[in-house]
Protein backbone atom coordinates (compact mmCIF):
# COMPACT_ATOMS: atom_id res chain seq x y z
CA UNK A 1 0.00 0.00 0.00
CA UNK A 2 1.42 3.33 -1.02
CA UNK A 3 1.63 5.92 1.74
CA UNK A 4 0.15 9.27 0.99
CA UNK A 5 1.48 12.36 2.66
CA UNK A 6 1.70 16.07 2.04
CA UNK A 7 5.36 16.39 2.89
CA UNK A 8 8.38 14.26 3.68
CA UNK A 9 10.90 15.75 6.09
CA UNK A 10 14.41 14.44 6.54
CA UNK A 11 15.36 14.49 10.20
CA UNK A 12 18.64 13.78 11.95
CA UNK A 13 19.21 12.55 15.48
CA UNK A 14 22.66 13.66 16.59
CA UNK A 15 24.66 13.92 19.80
CA UNK A 16 27.35 12.09 21.77
CA UNK A 17 27.52 8.34 22.34
CA UNK A 18 25.16 6.88 24.91
CA UNK A 19 22.78 9.82 25.14
CA UNK A 20 19.84 7.71 24.00
CA UNK A 21 19.43 8.74 20.37
CA UNK A 22 18.37 5.30 19.15
CA UNK A 23 16.09 4.84 22.14
CA UNK A 24 14.38 8.16 21.42
CA UNK A 25 13.81 7.07 17.85
CA UNK A 26 12.58 3.67 18.96
CA UNK A 27 10.20 5.22 21.47
CA UNK A 28 8.86 7.56 18.81
CA UNK A 29 8.34 4.83 16.23
CA UNK A 30 7.43 1.80 18.33
CA UNK A 31 5.97 3.57 21.34
CA UNK A 32 8.09 1.61 23.74
CA UNK A 33 11.48 1.69 25.38
CA UNK A 34 14.23 -0.30 23.76
CA UNK A 35 15.52 -2.31 26.69
CA UNK A 36 18.51 -4.08 25.14
CA UNK A 37 19.90 -1.43 22.90
CA UNK A 38 23.10 -1.86 20.90
CA UNK A 39 25.21 1.14 20.03
CA UNK A 40 24.64 2.33 16.51
CA UNK A 41 27.20 1.55 13.86
CA UNK A 42 27.21 4.22 11.16
CA UNK A 43 23.66 5.26 10.46
CA UNK A 44 20.27 3.64 10.95
CA UNK A 45 16.91 5.02 10.21
CA UNK A 46 13.22 4.83 10.74
CA UNK A 47 10.15 6.63 9.55
CA UNK A 48 6.69 7.52 10.77
CA UNK A 49 3.80 9.42 9.31
CA UNK A 50 2.34 12.07 11.61
CA UNK A 51 -0.37 14.66 11.32
CA UNK A 52 0.70 18.18 12.16
CA UNK A 53 -1.48 21.24 11.72
CA UNK A 54 -3.84 19.39 9.42
CA UNK A 55 -1.02 18.18 7.16
CA UNK A 56 0.21 14.63 6.81
CA UNK A 57 3.96 14.55 7.18
CA UNK A 58 6.24 11.59 6.75
CA UNK A 59 9.29 11.91 8.97
CA UNK A 60 12.31 10.09 7.63
CA UNK A 61 14.62 9.98 10.62
CA UNK A 62 18.33 9.25 10.36
CA UNK A 63 19.79 8.00 13.60
CA UNK A 64 23.55 8.44 13.73
CA UNK A 65 26.40 6.82 15.63
CA UNK A 66 27.58 9.07 18.43
CA UNK A 67 31.18 8.03 18.84
CA UNK A 68 33.61 10.73 17.84
CA UNK A 69 35.43 8.70 15.21
CA UNK A 70 32.21 7.82 13.43
CA UNK A 71 31.53 11.46 12.84
CA UNK A 72 33.46 11.44 9.60
CA UNK A 73 31.17 8.66 8.42
CA UNK A 74 27.86 10.05 9.67
CA UNK A 75 28.55 13.57 8.44
CA UNK A 76 27.91 12.41 4.89
CA UNK A 77 24.27 11.97 5.83
CA UNK A 78 23.64 15.45 7.17
CA UNK A 79 23.18 16.95 3.76
CA UNK A 80 19.68 18.09 3.02
CA UNK A 81 18.20 17.52 6.48
CA UNK A 82 15.29 19.80 7.36
CA UNK A 83 15.29 19.12 11.08
CA UNK A 84 17.42 17.66 13.82
CA UNK A 85 17.12 16.41 17.36
CA UNK A 86 20.30 17.41 19.14
CA UNK A 87 20.55 15.06 22.09
CA UNK A 88 22.54 15.19 25.31
CA UNK A 89 22.21 13.22 28.52
CA UNK A 90 21.16 15.31 31.54
CA UNK A 91 23.27 13.03 33.76
CA UNK A 92 26.45 13.61 31.76
CA UNK A 93 28.08 17.00 31.56
CA UNK A 94 30.48 15.70 28.95
CA UNK A 95 27.66 15.08 26.48
CA UNK A 96 26.36 18.58 27.17
CA UNK A 97 29.77 20.13 26.61
CA UNK A 98 30.03 18.70 23.12
CA UNK A 99 26.73 20.18 21.96
CA UNK A 100 28.35 23.19 20.32
CA UNK A 101 30.45 20.95 18.07
CA UNK A 102 27.44 18.91 17.02
CA UNK A 103 25.47 22.05 16.31
CA UNK A 104 28.24 23.48 14.15
CA UNK A 105 28.33 20.24 12.19
CA UNK A 106 24.59 20.32 11.64
CA UNK A 107 24.49 23.93 10.54
CA UNK A 108 27.51 23.69 8.25
CA UNK A 109 26.78 20.31 6.72
CA UNK A 110 23.00 20.06 6.64
CA UNK A 111 21.80 23.60 6.17
CA UNK A 112 22.28 26.88 8.06
CA UNK A 113 18.48 27.02 8.40
CA UNK A 114 18.08 23.53 9.79
CA UNK A 115 15.45 23.46 12.51
CA UNK A 116 17.06 22.05 15.63
CA UNK A 117 15.43 20.98 18.86
CA UNK A 118 17.69 20.39 21.83
CA UNK A 119 16.71 17.31 23.82
CA UNK A 120 18.00 16.77 27.35
CA UNK A 121 17.35 13.06 27.50
CA UNK A 122 17.13 10.68 30.48
CA UNK A 123 14.84 13.06 32.31
CA UNK A 124 13.76 10.08 34.42
CA UNK A 125 17.24 9.99 36.02
CA UNK A 126 16.74 13.30 37.77
CA UNK A 127 18.64 12.33 40.97
CA UNK A 128 21.78 11.85 38.85
CA UNK A 129 21.37 15.10 36.98
CA UNK A 130 24.53 17.01 36.07
CA UNK A 131 23.02 19.65 33.80
CA UNK A 132 20.24 21.91 35.04
CA UNK A 133 17.19 22.78 32.99
CA UNK A 134 17.99 26.47 33.30
CA UNK A 135 21.53 26.12 32.02
CA UNK A 136 20.44 24.12 28.99
CA UNK A 137 17.56 26.43 28.18
CA UNK A 138 19.98 29.34 28.21
CA UNK A 139 22.21 27.49 25.76
CA UNK A 140 19.18 26.81 23.60
CA UNK A 141 18.17 30.46 23.64
CA UNK A 142 21.63 31.69 22.76
CA UNK A 143 21.77 29.31 19.84
CA UNK A 144 18.18 29.75 18.68
CA UNK A 145 17.17 26.19 19.43
CA UNK A 146 13.93 24.82 20.75
CA UNK A 147 14.38 22.87 23.94
CA UNK A 148 12.73 20.01 25.78
CA UNK A 149 13.79 17.54 28.39
CA UNK A 150 12.83 14.05 27.30
CA UNK A 151 12.77 10.51 28.57
CA UNK A 152 13.07 7.69 26.09
CA UNK A 153 12.32 5.37 29.02
CA UNK A 154 8.96 6.81 30.03
CA UNK A 155 8.22 8.39 26.67
CA UNK A 156 7.81 11.81 28.23
CA UNK A 157 8.13 14.60 25.63
CA UNK A 158 9.46 12.23 22.97
CA UNK A 159 6.52 12.60 20.62
CA UNK A 160 6.44 16.32 21.39
CA UNK A 161 10.08 16.77 20.39
CA UNK A 162 9.59 15.32 16.94
CA UNK A 163 6.25 17.03 16.41
CA UNK A 164 7.50 20.42 17.59
CA UNK A 165 10.33 20.23 15.14
CA UNK A 166 7.99 19.20 12.32
CA UNK A 167 5.53 21.97 13.17
CA UNK A 168 8.24 24.60 13.01
CA UNK A 169 9.33 23.38 9.60
CA UNK A 170 5.73 23.49 8.36
CA UNK A 171 5.38 27.05 9.65
CA UNK A 172 8.50 27.99 7.74
CA UNK A 173 7.05 26.49 4.59
CA UNK A 174 3.79 28.37 5.12
CA UNK A 175 5.55 31.65 5.72
CA UNK A 176 7.65 31.14 2.61
CA UNK A 177 10.88 31.11 4.62
CA UNK A 178 11.54 27.58 3.44
CA UNK A 179 11.00 26.60 -0.16
CA UNK A 180 10.17 22.90 -0.26
CA UNK A 181 11.00 22.69 -3.93
CA UNK A 182 14.55 23.87 -3.52
CA UNK A 183 16.98 20.94 -3.59
CA UNK A 184 18.63 20.34 -0.25
CA UNK A 185 15.69 21.84 1.67
CA UNK A 186 15.20 18.45 3.35
CA UNK A 187 11.58 18.58 2.34
CA UNK A 188 9.88 16.63 -0.39
CA UNK A 189 6.34 17.18 -1.45
CA UNK A 190 3.89 14.34 -1.48
CA UNK A 191 1.18 14.08 -4.15
CA UNK A 192 -1.36 16.19 -2.29
CA UNK A 193 0.92 19.15 -1.65
CA UNK A 194 2.35 19.06 -5.16
CA UNK A 195 -1.11 19.73 -6.50
CA UNK A 196 -1.60 22.58 -4.05
CA UNK A 197 1.73 24.14 -4.80
CA UNK A 198 1.46 23.84 -8.54
CA UNK A 199 -2.03 25.10 -9.04
CA UNK A 200 -1.39 28.75 -8.26
CA UNK A 201 1.70 28.57 -10.40
CA UNK A 202 -0.04 27.28 -13.49
CA UNK A 203 -2.73 29.91 -12.89
CA UNK A 204 0.01 32.55 -12.97
CA UNK A 205 1.38 31.11 -16.17
CA UNK A 206 -1.99 31.47 -17.86
CA UNK A 207 -2.28 35.12 -16.81
CA UNK A 208 -1.04 37.45 -19.54
CA UNK A 209 2.59 38.39 -18.97
CA UNK A 210 3.53 42.03 -19.14
CA UNK A 211 5.22 42.55 -22.43
CA UNK A 212 8.47 44.42 -22.68
CA UNK A 213 7.76 46.23 -25.89
Amino acid sequence: MAETYDFLFKFLVIGSAGTGKSCLLHQFIENKFKQDSNHTIGVEFGSRVVTVGGKTVKLQIWDTAGQERFRSVTRSYYRGAAGALLVYDITSRETYNSLAAWLTDARTLASPNIVVILCGNKKDLDPEREVTFLEASRFAQENELMFLETSALTGENVEEAFLKCARTILNKIDSGELDPERTGSGVQCGDASLRQLRQPRSAQAVAPQPCGC
Binding site: A17, G18, Q35, D36, S37, N38, H39, Q67, E68, E94
Partner: peptide, 14 residues
Protein backbone atom coordinates in the same frame (compact mmCIF):
# COMPACT_ATOMS: atom_id res chain seq x y z
CA UNK B 1 37.69 4.70 29.56
CA UNK B 2 34.45 6.64 29.43
CA UNK B 3 33.87 5.59 25.82
CA UNK B 4 34.38 1.94 26.71
CA UNK B 5 32.21 2.19 29.78
CA UNK B 6 29.40 3.67 27.70
CA UNK B 7 29.32 0.58 25.51
CA UNK B 8 29.89 -2.01 28.21
CA UNK B 9 26.21 -2.56 28.79
CA UNK B 10 25.47 -2.31 25.11
CA UNK B 11 27.66 -5.15 23.92
CA UNK B 12 25.54 -8.23 23.19
CA UNK B 13 22.99 -6.85 25.63
CA UNK B 14 20.81 -9.91 25.16
Amino acid sequence: EEAIRTDLNRTFPD
